[in-house]
């Protein structure tokens, strides 16, 4: 304000302002930079901290940490209550990792195919009126909290699936596991329902951004609508499909609560050799395991084990974001933003 009235007190103020100018700029840069560094330090601190806490468990078990070194449920019970003065670290997370890979992998693969087709439908084939309500609905579904999906799963779908399982089948495996409606297939299904809206929204966005010149050029050559979509639009949006799949994988890996609610809650590796029973076997992914043993964090050995699980999740998430970054590059070449 003062500088705009230079007549009266203009000179000294202007001089003062000139003095201040470079300093304000410098100060702004320094303050903003400092805040950024602070945030970065927090993040780096978090990563380092998680790894340092996880170290005892990793160093004790070596590569066996990732292997199958016995019944995980019993191992975790012993870690929790060793019965001796010495803490017990013996742990092999294979069952949990397999449960994670199975649920996440199947959900993402199925979800990617489904979302691609659904996005094509949304962008190209749906009637105009349906298209107009579908777009906001999908973005709403993408924001529905996972605990709501978990609630529907555990109260509606699990009893329904449970009733479908025959008594004979339940008795055939009664000594090892109990078959209920809560199993890996249901968990995977709900996981897929959860990530499909996210992926569909991303893919549909990319499909809409395909330059019109390409789709019209293809149409002008007498190629039908499906082939134009498939050979031009989907081809161009391929990086977005992968990016969407990567994002969905991250969500699925990190999903703890919903999976803790519907996956069956016991560390077990569903075995494809079991035939049809395989689909009904319970499991418990990595993230859900942390929720299960959250009360045990006061115990250093249990805490180290859980931080080990957290570290594995963290590394997977980082690998995924590097993957997403690599995949996004070709998009930029065509001038398409994800």
């Amino acid at each position: 304000m003062a500088t705009s009235a230079p007549t009266a007190t203009g000179r000294p103020l202007a001089a003062l302002a000139r003095l201040r100018e470079p300093w304000t700029d410098r100060r702004a840069e320094l303050v903003l930079g400092a805040v950024s560094c602070f945030v970065l330090a927090l993040i780096v601190g978090m990563v380092v901290f998680v790894f340092s806490k996880a170290w005892p468990s990793f160093s004790h078990n070596g590569l066996g940490w990732f292997g199958d070194t016995g019944n995980v449920n019993q191992q975790m019970d012993r870690i929790q209550q060793p019965g001796t003065a010495e803490p017990v670290y013996d742990f092999g997370a294979f069952d949990l990792i397999w449960g994670t890979v199975l649920t996440t992998g199947v959900a993402v693969l199925f979800g990617a195919a489904f979302s691609t087709l659904a996005a094509i439908f949304m962008v190209e084939f749906a009637p105009e009126s349906l298209r107009r309500i579908l777009t906001p609905t999908v973005s709403l579904l993408a924001a529905v909290p996972s605990v709501i999906y978990g609630l529907i799963g555990i109260l509606v779908l699990a009893p329904f699936v449970g009733d479908l399982i025959s008594q004979d089948r339940k008795e055939s495996v009664a000594g090892v596991i109990s078959l209920t409606g809560e199993n890996w297939l249901l968990a995977t299904f709900i996981l897929a329902v959860m990530i499909i809206p996210i992926m569909t929204a991303i893919i549909a966005q990319a499909l809409r951004q395909v330059p019109r010149g390409w789709t019209e050029g293809a149409a002008a050559l007498g190629v039908n609508r499906w082939r134009v979509m498939w050979t031009i639009s989907v081809r161009t949006a391929r990086p977005a499909i992968v990016a969407g799949a990567v994002l969905a994988t991250g969500r699925a890996l990190g999903e703890a609560i919903m999976l803790a609610m519907v996956s069956g809650g016991t560390a077990f590796a569903p075995n494809p050799v079991d035939g049809l029973t395989f689909f009904l076997e319970p499991t418990r992914p990595l993230a859900a395991t942390i929720v299960f043993y959250r009360e045990g964090l006061a115990n250093p050995a249990m805490a180290s084990t859980l931080y080990g699980i957290a570290a594995v999740l963290l590394v997977s998430a980082m690998a995924l974001s590097i993957g997403a970054y690599v995949v996004k590059q070709p998009m930029k070449k065509y001038g398409i933003r994800t």
Binding site: G213, W214, A219, G222, I232, R235
Partner: peptide
């Protein structure tokens, strides 16, 4: 689509597809 096969168009702005030269010509 049959109609557009018989009546082809070259656009004002060149719009080659994001694929190889060969695939572009072979596209139709």
């Amino acid at each position: 689509t049959q109609l557009r096969r018989r009546i082809s168009m070259v656009f004002q702005q060149p719009n080659p597809f994001p694929m190889s030269v060969f695939d572009n010509v072979a596209y139709a």
